[in-house]
Amino acid sequence: MKKTIAIIGLTSLAGFYAIFSKPNQLKPQTIPTAQHVDSLKEDESESSIVKLYKEIALEGKLKFEAFEMAMKGYQNMSFKNKDIITVIDFSLPSTEKRMAVIDLKNKKMLFHTIVSHGRNSGEKYATSFSNSHGSHQSSLGFYKTSNTYQGGNGYSLVLDGLEKGINDQAKPRAVVVHGADYCSQSIINSTGRLGRSYGCPALPRDLAKPIINTIKDGTMLFIYAENKTYLAQSKVLKAKPTTLIAQKDIAEIQAGQGVMN
């Protein structure tokens, strides 16, 4: 009899603990890992870029892929002038408008124009890129615009290449934004493509000055192409976004404020 009572008592006690521990087992609360937080930031980044692309009405004017990469780099770096960005899409032929100057603050495109690539980068399309002196090729990636000057090609804008081994020799190579007679619709009409530079993103003469004055002094310029080598080498694009969720918010989440299931 005593053994039977003892067994019943133990069974009841086990049931008691099972009942009150079961809810916690069904709904465990876990503090998100750094990887989880990064995933949240990336998701938020994607949605905000898509929204901005639509608000500026860039469809049919600038490939989403080019804009997306430009914005990811923009989020991962700091620029003196954050309102203006320039995106050059070298996946397009030189006969098409492939430079876009965008006002992020007011959400509108300021300029949309043709632009020349380096003569050794290709004929109608730019397919080869280099950071080397004497290559006469264009360089991909992220740049910061600098000062202006009057040179052999007239009013020009200095570019600082921000990606080591990819475009950081732009300044020593004198790769600058300038106007050129060979960058015009008349050249396209007569030859089937634009004339080419020594690596500079050259503009139509009538647009060079207004564009340079708009993007000078610390704005971001990004040159895009569907180039696997660049994508594999770019540390800017591989960096984690840092501006979408404030560091204090991350700290609060990891401390247990706003615990996720």
Results as ranks from 00 to 15, higher is better:
G258I: 05
N189E: 14
I49L: 10
D103Q: 01
Q150W: 14
Q169R: 11
G118Y: 01
H117Y: 08
A100F: 01
N261T: 11
K216F: 05
S186F: 10
E252C: 10
H117K: 07
K228T: 13
A251V: 10
N147D: 15
K82G: 05
A126N: 08
S12P: 04
K164S: 15
D217H: 06
T4L: 15
L140D: 03
Q257G: 00
Y143D: 01
A6V: 10
P32T: 04
N81K: 15
E163T: 04
G134D: 06
I188P: 07
M109P: 09
F90W: 15
K228C: 09
S48T: 14
S21C: 07
E65G: 03
G118N: 04
I5E: 10
H178I: 01
I212D: 00
S21F: 10
V101Q: 00
N167C: 02
G218M: 02
D217C: 04
A170V: 03
A225N: 15
I49A: 11
Y198T: 02
F142E: 03
P204C: 04
F90N: 13
S156K: 01
L13E: 03
A208K: 00
Q254A: 09
I19H: 07
P28V: 12
G73Y: 00
N167V: 02
A6D: 09
Y224G: 06
I187Q: 06
Y74N: 08
A251Y: 06
T4M: 13
A126W: 07
V50T: 13
A239V: 06
V115G: 04
A70H: 04
N227D: 15
A246V: 09
A174M: 06
R98G: 07
L140Y: 02
A70C: 13
F20A: 05
S135H: 05
G199A: 04
L58S: 11
Q137T: 08
Q29N: 13
E96D: 13
K3E: 12
T191N: 10
S186Q: 15
K41E: 12
M71R: 03
G179K: 00
L26D: 14
D206P: 03
T191P: 00
M69E: 12
A225L: 13
Y155L: 01
K27T: 11
T219R: 00
S116D: 05
M71S: 01
N106R: 01
S116M: 09
A14S: 12
F67N: 06
V177G: 03
I5G: 00
G179C: 01
H117E: 07
Q29F: 14
L62G: 06
R173M: 03
L92A: 11
Q233N: 12
P23R: 07
S45D: 08
G199Q: 01
K3T: 11
K209L: 05
T11I: 15
E55C: 10
D168E: 09
I84M: 03
Y125R: 05
S94G: 15
A225W: 11
T127H: 03
K80W: 02
L140I: 02
G73M: 02
H133D: 14
S184M: 08
Q25R: 15
L244Q: 08
G151C: 09
K107Q: 13
S146M: 10
S94W: 02
M71V: 03
Y155K: 02
E55N: 15
H117T: 06
K107V: 05
Q257M: 08
V175F: 06
G165V: 09
S190A: 14
I85T: 06
M99H: 01
V158K: 12
T229W: 02
